[in-house]
Design a protein around this nucleic acid. Structure first.
Length: 485
RNA sequence: GGUGAUGUAGCCAAGUGGCCAGGCAGCGGUCUGCAAAACCGUCUACGGUGGUUCGAAUCCACUCAUCACCUCCA
């Protein structure tokens, strides 16, 4: 099925037409590994995952998905510096070698990142590569030399800058983000590094060495410039090395449109002479209970924070998929609760289908439903409409009274849908085994006896007592079950 | 100052001119001694004002409110 995507480059819905037929190369801006990922990061990763899954399952494309890991930047340097308060014991002992400390810190958070995305249902097997910036230093340097050779970069006090004004004479700067150069808040952010830029809109390609910071040797135009890469250059270099240019899809958070992605386009074209990406896809931000998420507001959550509150990461995944990626997502605890129940309803539907053995029940037009759901997904990844279609099916279908052929078809459909949503189980219905305190089982047994003696008043009192202690009794004809609230 | 958004029922969230979004909660019912779960049914909203139109949440104007981004934050 043809996939349509909203391309930030021209602000239009476009039918996806990859560089090579049947093959999609997709690059996603990944994490800077200086801390645990927060739910805002997760939305971006989950969006990228959704895109690549829809391309595979609905579009039948062969997808090569790359997500970079930024393991060298101001924050990783800051937090890995000697005697940094951000250093954790689990990272090991700090040494006098800045690069070594940097590695220890970034590897620690890289592991936690992989851990987190795994819990969110992102399958590491789906990645073509998860490259680290520091593994591409040579390639970045090569690109910087090319940009300089082509006349779009200058060296100043050991750093190398991209000359935006020069570039603007030959090409467009502002492809993703309309920039009013006359009103550019020039110098509004004072760079504490005190680098010497010629122009406020110029950006750094290579940063000069500072004392006690990690650095790599770099020679450019006969000048020795030990230092480290600027922020945007890693993406340009990796895309070129791993994919070749141009490639198909680039995803990222909307905040990265400018300057990160704008600069990336300029760099790649100024160095390699090729516009890097055909389709730019940006996901909107996330708010928490209607407010911007920030540490100071106390509404800043990492996945670990939420897990410790008893939230299942897959409910977060489902919750985020129930809104369209291009709208602001309002993360609320009530919303997670709502998502949990909705997800369970679908899960129960699947279990019911698996357990059903009705040989001559009703036939269901599964093909029609599948077409509808897939069309919605193919329409710029419209998960809310796809889910509406799915619930429409569930509402109109009794899984215990469908014909055997429909049952098989329905299971196949649910399985297909789950290849995208990735939140349902197709095994045996799990039997919840929980530790019930002896006190509770005793009360429950007493209640069962009271009930058998038709002493309902006592039975109700005991139910209430059990309820107050956090457990619920579910009766059937012949037995009862204790579940935790 | 510039740029880009948003405002839809108790909550979340689709919808861009006429036809049902959907989920959660609530309510009513079936079932149950009572419950729980499940299932069935139900709830009819579009910030405000004016306009265009046979008809507007949807188009236009004005207005109110909220938010984000503008050099390293997904």
């Amino acid at each position: 099925m043809k996939i349509s995507v909203y391309n930030s480059l021209n602000k239009q819905l476009e039918e996806l037409s990859p560089v090579r037929e049947n093959e999609v190369k997709m690059y996603s801006c990944g994490p800077t590994v200086y801390n645990y990922a927060h739910i805002g990061n997760m939305r971006s990763f989950l969006f990228a995952d959704l895109v690549q899954r829809v391309l595979r399952v609905v579009g039948k494309y062969d997808v090569s998905w790359v997500m970079n890991i930024t393991d060298i930047d101001d924050k990783t340097i800051r937090d890995s510096a000697k005697n940094s308060p951000a250093w954790l014991n689990d990272m090991g002992e700090q040494t006098d070698e800045p690069k070594d400390n940097l590695k220890k810190l970034t590897e620690f958070y890289q592991d936690s990142f992989l851990d987190d995305i795994g819990k969110l249902g992102i399958d590491v097997e789906h990645f073509f590569a998860l490259p680290c910036a520091t593994d591409f230093i040579d390639e970045m340097q090569e690109l910087i030399r090319k940009i300089h050779k082509n006349g779009y970069a200058y060296i100043s006090e050991g750093s190398v800058y991209f000359d935006v004004n020069k570039w603007r004479k030959d090409d467009v700067y502002g492809k993703l983000f309309k920039i009013d150069f006359d009103n550019f808040r020039a110098g509004s952010r004072v760079d504490s590094d005190e680098y010497e830029k010629e122009n406020a809109s110029d950006f750094v390609l290579w940063k000069a060495l500072k004392e006690n910071e990690p650095f790599w040797e770099f020679e450019i135009d006969g000048v020795s410039c030990p230092g480290r890469p600027g922020w945007h250059i890693e993406c340009s270099a990796m895309e070129y090395e791993l994919f070749g240019l141009p490639f198909d899809i680039h995803t990222g958070g909307i905040d990265l449109k400018f300057p990160h992605h704008e600069d990336e386009i300029a760099q790649s074209k100024a160095g390699y002479g090729i516009e890097p990406t055909k389709y730019w896809l940006h996901n909107e931000f996330l708010e928490v209970e209607g407010e911007k998420m920030s540490k100071s507001a106390g509404n800043f959550f990492t996945l670990r924070d939420l897990e410790s509150k008893g939230i299942d990461p897959l409910d977060i995944r489902f919750s985020m998929l129930s809104a369209h990626y291009s709208t602001k997502f309002n993360f609320t605890f009530q919303g997670i609760e709502s998502a949990k129940k909705a997800r369970k309803r679908v899960q129960d539907f699947i279990y019911d289908l698996l357990e059903s053995d009705n040989k001559d029940g009703d036939n269901v037009d599964v093909e029609k439903v599948k077409l509808n759901i897939f069309e919605e997904l193919a329409n710029d990844f419209h998960t809310p409409k796809a889910l509406a279609g799915l619930f429409g099916l569930i509402n109109s279908t009794n899984p215990k009274s469908v014909s055997e052929s429909s049952r098989i078809e329905l299971l196949a459909l649910m399985n297909d849908i789950n290849h995208i949503f990735g939140i349902w189980d197709f095994g045996e219905r799990p039997i919840e085994i929980i530790d019930i305190p002896a006190e509770i089982t005793e009360l429950a047994a007493q209640r069962w006896n009271a009930k058998a003696e038709r002493n309902f008043q006592l039975a109700d009192e005991l139910r209430k007592a059990i309820d107050e202690k956090g457990y619920i009794i579910k009766d059937t004809k012949t037995e009862y079950e204790i579940i935790k609230k």
